[in-house]
Structure formats: structure tokens, C-alpha cells
Design a protein around this nucleic acid. Structure first.
Length: 424
RNA sequence: GGUGGGAUUCCCGAGUGGCUAAAGGGGGCAGACUGUAAAUCUGCUGGCUCCGCCUUCGGUGGUUCGAAUCCACCUCCCACCA
């Protein structure tokens, strides 16, 4: 199985400018390809991960990823797939986001020894003058053509500013620069990027005559048609452990529905295609498959030690799916002997206890990030979902005192959401 | 440029003077059942120092004891006509 066939088998291929040409290109080695990420936040979430996984696979096959973080395009905002314009961010925020995203991406993509290149399009886009830009590439873009793009058309009704309208030109320009400076031959990206990517291949062809390609990756949806990667209360599952603890990250994968485990494992684990198919056979042990999925996904994002810890914490809490180790796997997942489960820890300022009436449990839930407001917390308590140190709380006005934190307070909302709360 | 229609809580969408924190559905959360799954049933789903108070129905003013609902102006969308 060559790399292109593997990408296909794993479900990474959605649209491509020329399937055969791309397969031929990739059957060689050392092909430089690129994928861009806009610094709209200081962390990626699992929704961003699909193209990252595709880059990983390509890199493992001997190709060279050019990871572009859009310090310049982030100042514009891509309208593709968006209902309304995004707020314009200030420059420091963007610069900070660029740094954070690079750090996260370098966990997935190996950088050493020239095996990957990290670039920021601010390095060229911010230097070019408007007139210069118009003269260089403006004549190649047809407004008529741009207007017929789906991503533009859908925004014509709700309103599309000139600023955003320019986005695809900038993205196309990136491809041209990367082709010229780095010999980049292929761009990959989410399916909503198709229009922008095709604009790039055309620009390159017309400016330099080089033949370059684009391939999109499908957009992941969950069973209810929502964008994949949201959880409890529609929150994103972040890669940044400060925003989503490794335990919760592991749990996100562990709680996948049966019907999508195989798909997710093909996308997000490094295990070979046949092994994934074997593990996900419903006759085998679907819960073991989920553990392996969760473990492998956590390994990639947070490293093996953190993954093992999360696996142990969840396993000792909820039980292991395959305690006798009957399921064979090449995964490095190993049964962990009884350990104290390390649940996600949150610390709150000691001053929260200053109020003579005590600290309301409902408030504590909010501070610990288990619900969005005190009112919400009160409702959870009324619904019988909350316990403190394994004792159910039934009074919505209940409070805790300093003594309850003696050994770290164990706060629970529902069956699966735990926080160990400490004072600082 | 002209005429008509619209903007409602996370989303869709009711509501046309007090009984409206605002129907219904979706989504989400929680409870029961389970396999930390799905399906199903039940409850909750603006905020707060919570049996009371405060803030919401595009924006700003006004009428009224009282407005998401009436009036004026503004902004943005949609439709038809030119």
C-alpha cells in the first residue's frame, strides 16, 4: 500500500485537483507539501487535528511538511464556512497565538533535521505593497469567477466585506511563494478550503507554469451533524492541557460512540489499517478498542506518560475493558496495576473561603469548570448530579468549608466528571 | 431608486399591551436503564448572596400604571418592481 492509498483507506481524501497525478507525485519521496492554520486562538482543538494527522502520515512516508501558521491571513479572517465575519484581533494576540500553535503542532510533526519547515505568511504578505500585489497577481483573478465560489456565494446574502473577500487571494499567494521558495507541490486542507486551494494551484500555474496540486480532507461531523470535537456544553476539546485536562482529553475519545470508533482510530491513531479493522470488529471487544483509541490519541497530543496516567485514572475509576489482556495489539498501552487515580486537579484561591457563610457548592462547581454559572450549578445539585467527597449534595445552597479540602476535595458532577479541588 | 416583509433567549421558530424569563422543536446537561456506547423514558436548560431580586426579544428615543408586543428615527437582511 503506497502512501496515497493509505490516505485513502484512512478516509483522508475528499476532493483533489488530479487524483492520479497526486498519487504519482506521492509515490516518490521528499515531496514538499503544505497546510495552513490561522492563529484564531492560542490552542488547537480536536477539530483541527485531521489535517495534522494527514501531515504526519505524509511525513512518515518521507515527504516534507511545510507547516504554515497564518500570522498575516489571521489578521483578515477566512470567510469560508463562516456565517458572519470574525472579530478582528489585535496584533499582539495574533503573534502570541502563532507561537502557541507552533508549539502544539511540533508535537505532531517532527521538525529535526529539516524534516519539516515552519513558516509564517506574515514574513512575506506583510512586506508586499498593495499596488505591487495588485500588479503582480491581481490580473489573474477573475471577480466573476470568485463570485461563483460556494464559500463566497453563501455569504453574498448575509454580507461579505471586501476584507474577507480578499482572503482566498492571500491564500493563493502563499502557495505561490511556497512553491517558489520551497518547491512546494501540494496543498492539503479542510474541505471548506477547496475554493481557496484551487485558486492557489491556478495562480501558481499561471505565474510560473509549475504544476501543483491540492487535496481536501473531509469535514468531520458527529452523529447529530454537529462539527466534531465539541463536548459537554458545546465546549471544544482543546489540545492545551490547561484548557482541557489530559484526563478529559482521554475521556473524550473513550466516550466515542460504537459506530465511529473505527473511523476515529483510522484518523487519529498511528496503528496500521488492518490492525484497526481487526480491533474494531464488533465481535472482538469494542470497549478495548475505545481504550486503545483514547490512549493513542492522548499519546500523540500529550505524550506517553500522560496517556498512561489518564488511562490508569479512567480505568481505576470505571474499570478496564480487557483486564486479562486478551486482545492483541501493537499499541504501547499496558495494563496498569492499581494506582491512585490522578484526576484532573483545579486549584482555587483560598480567599474564596473568606465569606462567613461558606463557599457554596454551586459556586465551587463553576470555579472548577464543571458548569458555566452558579445558577447552573444549583440546577445540577437539584437534579441530584453532584457529590462532594463522594457524598451526594441535595441542597442547592449547601456550602463547603476549609476542612472539606483536607485531602483535596473531590468534586463530582454526573457519573463521569471529576475534579480534585485544592486551595492555593 | 420605489414598494412590501423581516430582525426573538445556543440554533430553528411561536408570541402583536399585563397571565412572558418568553410556546414548540433541535442541540446541550443531568437522572433511570446499560457497556464510561447507542436507543428509550424523565427532569433541567438567562443571571444573582435564589422561596426574592436583576438583566434579556437588532439600536436609540417616545406613548402607557405597565411594552418583545404601540409610535418615531436609525442599522442590517429578504422579496418584488425599476
Amino acid at each position: 500500500m503506497n502512501i496515497f492509498q493509505e490516505l485513502k483507506a484512512r478516509g483522508f481524501c475528499y476532493q483533489a485537483t488530479d487524483v492520479d497525478a497526486i498519487e504519482t507525485l506521492l509515490s516518490g519521496t521528499g515531496v514538499r507539501f503544505y497546510c495552513g492554520f490561522d492563529p484564531t486562538g492560542n490552542s488547537l482543538h480536536v477539530g483541527h487535528l485531521l489535517p495534522v494527522m494527514a501531515m504526519r502520515l505524509l511525513q512518515k512516508a518521507g515527504h516534507v511538511p511545510i507547516v504554515l501558521v497564518g500570522g498575516a491571513t489571521g489578521r483578515i479572517g477566512d470567510p469560508s464556512g463562516k456565517q458572519t465575519a470574525r472579530p478582528i484581533m489585535d496584533l499582539e494576540t495574533i503573534a502570541d497565538n502563532v507561537r502557541c500553535l507552533r508549539g502544539q503542532l511540533s508535537r505532531f510533526i517532527e521538525v529535526e533535521g529539516g524534516r519539516a519547515v515552519f513558516v509564517d505568511n506574515a514574513d512575506w504578505l506583510c512586506k508586499i505593497g498593495y499596488i505591487e500585489m495588485l500588479r503582480e497577481v491581481g490580473h489573474i483573478f477573475s471577480v466573476n469567477r470568485m463570485l461563483s465560489q460556494d464559500s463566497v456565494k453563501s455569504r453574498l446574502e448575509s454580507g461579505l466585506s471586501f476584507l474577507e473577500f480578499n482572503y482566498s487571494i492571500l491564500q493563493a499567494y502563499d502557495f505561490m511563494v511556497l512553491n517558489r521558495e520551497y518547491g512546494c507541490r501540494l496543498e492539503i486542507g479542510g474541505q471548506d478550503q477547496w475554493g481557496n486551494m484551487v485558486a492557489g494551484t491556478e495562480l501558481v500555474r499561471r505565474k510560473s507554469g509549475a504544476e501543483v496540486h491540492a487535496m481536501t480532507i473531509p469535514l468531520l461531523m458527529d452523529s447529530s451533524g454537529q462539527k466534531f470535537g465539541k463536548t459537554s456544553g458545546g465546549n471544544n476539546v482543546w489540545l492545551d492541557p490547561a484548557r482541557t485536562s489530559t484526563f478529559d482529553y482521554y475521556q473524550f475519545w473513550r466516550n466515542s460512540e460504537d459506530s465511529v470508533v473505527e473511523k476515529l482510530m483510522l484518523y487519529f491513531s498511528p496503528l496500521a489499517v488492518d490492525e484497526v479493522k481487526r480491533l474494531c470488529d464488533p465481535a472482538l471487544n469494542i470497549n478495548r478498542a475505545k481504550e486503545i483509541l483514547a490512549y493513542e490519541a492522548t499519546c500523540l497530543a500529550h505524550g506517553e506518560a500522560a496517556a498512561r496516567e489518564a488511562y490508569a485514572a479512567a480505568g481505576s475509576r470505571f474499570g478496564y475493558a480487557d483486564p486479562e489482556g486478551k486482545v492483541e495489539t501493537s499499541s504501547s498501552i499496558r495494563l496498569v496495576e492499581k494506582v491512585e487515580a490522578e484526576l484532573p486537579v483545579v486549584s482555587i484561591p483560598r480567599s474564596e473561603l473568606d465569606d462567613p457563610r461558606g463557599l457554596a457548592v454551586a459556586k465551587l462547581l463553576t470555579l472548577a469548570g464543571l458548569c458555566k454559572s452558579t445558577s447552573d450549578g444549583r440546577r445540577l445539585i437539584q437534579g441530584g448530579a453532584v457529590s462532594v467527597n463522594e457524598e451526594k449534595v441535595s441542597d442547592p445552597s449547601a456550602t463547603v468549608a476549609g476542612a472539606d479540602f483536607a485531602a483535596g476535595l473531590l468534586l463530582r458532577s454526573g457519573k463521569k466528571n471529576f475534579r480534585k479541588v485544592t486551595l492555593e
